[in-house]
Design a protein around this nucleic acid. Structure first.
Length: 521
RNA sequence: GCUCCUGUGGUGUAGACCGGCCAAGCAUUCCGGCCUUUCGAGCCGGAGAACCCGGGUUCGAAUCCCGGCGGGAGCACCA
């Protein structure tokens, strides 16, 4: 290879060796707790204010969690404020769902977000009108009555439409006609003047307000002129004192558009941080698809385990801390990332492990008869192997005519080989003699677990015959596993996390009847 | 087509702005070991990328420059 290159390296290495041997000690990079990179231009603002601005037309999902966590983290990091702003100005295209206003707030609280201010854009129409008029009056906006197709042709060619040059008095007259109903829906729109030579056609004279005659779920028919996203957002971000906007990179063009608004109004535009789209390898994140699926009955609701909504993930037992940690780990960057479920589930398991008590769950129970049992056996199973102080689950097994009866999981049948040794966890080793339709038969072999371990015998869990309550575990694909669980599971409260041994972590959904959600993967 | 963003193991990320300490760190995943008992957790060990490709600058490039290719987003009277 390049000799000069390596020679120089060695030369330098030798130099270091001779003079500063301590530098050669391989410094191990500890896994430091990851934090978000510092915000830019914090000093330019009186206070750091971030905002999350959802459309209440669906439930929040994992993708929404990304900007939410960033906004919250930064607000807290700089002693700033977090604003929640409902962007519900398009009853026509994205009709707001009244229950979602509250549901979104609940989800935010669940995530541990501190919401300092709340706004609803549909309450702020008079404000938007005020600014629309000012822009019209100052010649920075105009009421355009061109047909969309015709207008597009013009702006694609960087050409002016006839409405643009009309004097402000005429613009205001037209504005009145929008408000009073003279213009029908689609006949007029307010446009913000920009540079018609802008390389990106999408920013040229963009629409700011339009006529809509659809009834708004909250405002009824009070208004017929509604702001479009870029207008209301651009106005609000300034009025609310937002200093840093964290938004998906699909909003790139919108940032450019809103800068025009800011320029016309003489405002300082907030700092913008673009983040990429967040995908989950499994789980649906498209609001419109979810909404359709719920309406046609494919999904049971916004918390159907197959969906990627925060409500669904919560029900499945995902901890908010796991979401937060995952988001911080991904960081605010403009590339699209696909979160692997493995990663987030592993993060989650770390969090719930210490608090998850252990229980047996015998799925698809099968009768097991053990013969040749001469004495009574006591099984003491730790509630949590690492915390003996939490106690044990105790079972006393008294043989009847030298036999004991158990229920074992049908899923374990394939592991039980005739003639082979099997360990009933915490009790005894048995030798299987028959595996058939009527159940499993086995003979008592020995007591010491080490014998089983040394023989690589399968360890299986069990429940004494006649013991246990019906239990159901809802799996991520919305199917269920059913069987018998230890009676004590019913003492847990809804929302509690626990582990069914050899099955995985779960979350209690309802205690009676016992229904849990599978959290493990 | 146009505008903008981006390209490190299976996945996610660190490093890149301020070239050498990076034949590349961490997490996840998988495999093996330890552990008074499975699963999990924990601890120990291992597997897996010469950093999209090609040129250039330099004593030296994952890091800078140019070109190519790939991926993504936007181009609504939606947000």
């Amino acid at each position: 290879m390049k000799e000069v290159n390596s020679w120089t390296q060695e030369e330098q290495l030798r130099h270091v060796e001779e003079n500063h041997p301590e530098l050669l000690a391989r410094r191990r990079v500890e896994e430091k707790k990851k934090t978000l990179p510092p915000l830019e231009n914090v000093d330019m603002w009186p206070i750091v204010k971030t905002r999350f601005a959802p459309n209440p037309d669906g439930a929040l999902h994992l993708g929404s969690a990304e900007p939410i966590i960033f906004c919250d983290e930064y607000a807290k990091m700089y002693d700033g404020r977090f604003i929640l702003r409902y962007e519900d100005t398009s009853a026509e295209v994205k009709p707001p769902i009244p229950e979602m206003y509250k549901a979104i707030l609940e989800d935010l609280e669940w995530l541990g977000v501190k919401v300092d201010e709340k706004y609803r854009q549909s309450d702020r129409l008079p404000l938007y009108y005020e600014y629309a008029e000012r822009l019209l009056k100052e010649g920075n906006a105009y009421v355009c009555t061109c047909e969309v197709k015709a207008f597009r042709k013009l702006y694609m060619a960087s050409e002016t439409c006839p409405c643009r040059g009309l004097p402000p008095v005429e613009q205001l007259r037209r504005w009145e006609k929008m408000l009073d109903g003279t213009y029908e829906k689609g006949e007029a729109v307010v446009r913000i003047k920009t540079d018609l030579d802008d390389p990106n056609p999408a920013v040229r004279d963009w629409p700011a307000l339009r006529i809509s005659d659809v009834e708004h779920p909250l405002q009824g028919n009070r208004y017929r002129v509604w702001p479009l996203y870029n207008f209301s957002c651009g106005i609000d971000d300034h009025l609310m004192g937002v200093s840093h906007i964290i938004r998906g990179k699909e909003h790139d063009v919108n940032t450019t558009r809103q800068r025009w608004l800011q320029r016309h109004l003489g405002w300082q535009y907030p700092e913008v941080i673009n983040v990429g789209r967040l995908g989950l390898e499994a789980g649906i994140l498209s609001k419109s698809k979810m909404r359709a699926g719920i309406e046609d009955g494919t999904y049971s609701g916004w918390d159907d385990p197959r969906l990627g909504t925060l409500r669904a993930l919560r029900r499945r037992g995902l901890q908010p801390e796991a979401i937060r940690a995952t988001m911080i780990h991904v960081g605010p960057k403009p590339v699209n990332v696909t979160i692997s479920w493995d990663n987030i589930a592993a993060e989650n398991r770390k969090i719930i492990e210490p608090t998850s008590d252990r229980y047996f769950f015998v799925e698809d129970p099968v009768r097991l008869t053990v013969t040749g049992v001469t004495e009574r056996h006591a099984a003491t199973l730790p509630v949590h192997p690492d915390y003996p102080e939490r106690g044990t689950r105790d079972y006393v097994l008294t043989p009847k005519d030298g036999a004991l009866e158990f229920n074992v999981s049908g899923k374990d049948l394939e592991r039980l080989i005739v003639g082979g040794l099997t360990r009933l966890m915490g009790v005894m080793n048995i030798e299987v003699t028959e595996v058939g339709g009527s159940g499993v038969k086995a003979g008592y072999h020995s007591k010491d677990y080490r014998l089983a371990r040394d023989n690589d015998a399968p360890f299986i869990h069990w429940l004494p015959s006649g013991v246990g309550v019906d239990a159901r575990v809802v799996l991520p694909d919305a199917t269920s596993a059913t069987g018998l669980a230890e009676k004590r599971v019913q003492e847990m409260k809804s929302g509690e996390m626990f582990q069914f041994e050899r099955f995985g972590y779960c979350r209690v959904d309802t205690a009676k009847p016992f229904v849990a959600y599978f959290t493990h993967r």
